[in-house]
Amino acid sequence: MIHSFTKFKEKLMNYFFLLVATTSISILAMITLFLFKEGLPIFEKVGIKAFIFGNYWYPTADPAHFGIFPLIIGSVSVTLISALISIPLGVMTAIYLSEIASSRLREIVKPVVELLASLPSVVIGFFGMVIVAPFLQDHFNIATGLNMFNAAIMLAFMSIPTICTISEDALYSVPASLKEASLALGATSFETIVKVTLPAALSGISTAIILGLSRAIGETMVVLMVAGGAAMVPGSIFDPVRPLPGSIAAEMAEAPYRGDHYYALFAIGIVLFIFTFCFNIIADYLSNKYRQTGDATL
């Protein structure tokens, strides 16, 4: 009797956890389904090629133009420039924290870096708009401080904590025996870091970078506030751009329900989804490919 009750309890727990596990998956599946259902109808009006490579985004004009090429370029270029800032800063901070800093300093600096991640994006956006934009205007003599460069700096702020924390974990988990062996062979600690620790932690660092970038490309509030929002292909890094998430956020509220504009915004969502999906697949692939499985594999 008691035995069967225990068994029943066991089974109940099984079901409970199955339910919990499948809830998030099924919600994700439903969101994906919804995204495609609401986005695909636009391709009956506009060809996929004209949508992706079209140069003009005038969704409410008559006749309407649904070309998102400038928006894609905006998103990609902002993300790339922010990567140029955030990758060196994030990875080098991680190296410093895990390999060089004293444990006491590490205890202080690491939480501070992580705190950066907890800043709401609207605060970062506001900072970019009110402090950084006028600064850029005054000191670089450019027409507007609301531009690609400003947005890239703000996005870098947001992805540095991700890149730093995950890289630091990866570096930290490199077996001590590897480093000790390298030092014992007469390598300096700089050589050890560059030639032994970094390669061993490469998979973790790559994952960190990709996750940091996917955060940057999907970020909405910051780019909406500081990227300027001009739907044209930028000629310099000080030109305003209009990344994909910014367009969705700015226009969705007033797009007529199930009108062409509405479908087009969801189609932009699909494009973004594909971007981040690819990033995640790359991250997954990298973390499996260069995985340090034991002391002997290096």
């Binding site: 140069n55 003009y56 985004w57 005038y58 004009a61 008559d62 400038p70 507007t144 609301l146 909406l224 300027g228 929002g229 001009a230 739907a231 044209m232 305003p240 209009r242 956020a249 700015a250």
Partner: peptide
Amino acid sequence: SKENVYPGALLQA
């Protein structure tokens, strides 16, 4: 008069 604003205009929400 119903013509489009040029694409280089900054856009705020």
